[in-house]
Amino acid sequence: MNSSKTNPPTFQELILRLQTFWAERGCVLQQPYDVEVGAGTMAPETFLRVLGPKPYKVAYVQPSRRPADGRYGENPNRLYKHMQLQVILKPPPEDMQELYLQSLSAMGIHLRQHDIKFEEDNWESPTLGAWGIGWQVMLDGLEITQFTYFQQCGGVDLFPISAELTYGLERIAAFLQDVDSIYDIAWARDPETGQVTTYADVRLAEEQQFSVYNFEAADVEKTWKHFELCESECKKLLEGYAALQKEKRATDGLARDRARFPMLAAYDLCLKCSHLFNILDARGAISVTERVGVIARVRSLAVGITKAYLDQQGGGKSVAQHDMIKAVPKPPRAAKSKKVTVTS
């Protein structure tokens, strides 16, 4: 019954259409980040790129892992790992919303035949000291995109701000193809034989096995150890950078040491901590009293990295001195804080 029923795009065609659309509008097409993240926002192409003054446009697919959301491949609408297509436009153009609507047309949605609403939905991640203002975009009652104007990251007011679009690819594909289960989505269609490879063919085993791992098999003690190892290494790096910040050597060597300091590696370690926390959480291994404390530990890494990264980008000028950016102590409470988890 869909408008594009005659020729709905396969899952991979959907991705290609969106990527082409955004590439034609000047976006760098990045590849998925290869460290586990809970949301496209956490990939460095978003989280770190939105910091600082430098304009940037990027689009990428990001597999997002939320261990607690796994359903052993038995639920038609829920996944442990789902795909987001993430677009960052920094700064956002004035016709941001119109561009977004055009991208829907590019997917094969005839806007005139549908009901589109922008409903308030603000995004907040206390863990990352990040929040933004925006909407969930509803297409015939289905939430297809999160549209956010970032305001703060790592507790710092952003300037310029970025617009973030997060397309839920499985939902959109299921909608376009008019199937009731994600697993029935046609991922690819062989142009010669017409043979269809479904989402289940590609991903079902992964959903089953990782659900078992996350809920049953993950070794709690060892996962804790992984967490602690990643955390301590991340901390060590942050301390290393702090020591460089204090140094007074007036040579080019110091600037070079700062510029090539592996802050990106520190961020990877922080992401690993976040994912390991999520596994422990899904495993039911984190008690009430521990939970708050562990989240605070991940946050302190993320906030430390944000500050250090900004310093690094600003060529050693501290955040406070940076004339474009003001440090703000606390993000205000969001009206809705749906996505308040350690992952997203």
Partner: peptide, 19 residues
């Protein structure tokens, strides 16, 4: 006029009720 939107809303509600 073609019931396209209705079909979409029914689909979403069905998934929600199934959940």
């Amino acid at each position: 006029p073609e019931g396209i939107i209705r079909h979409g809303h029914e689909r979403v509600l069905r998934a929600r009720f199934n959940d």
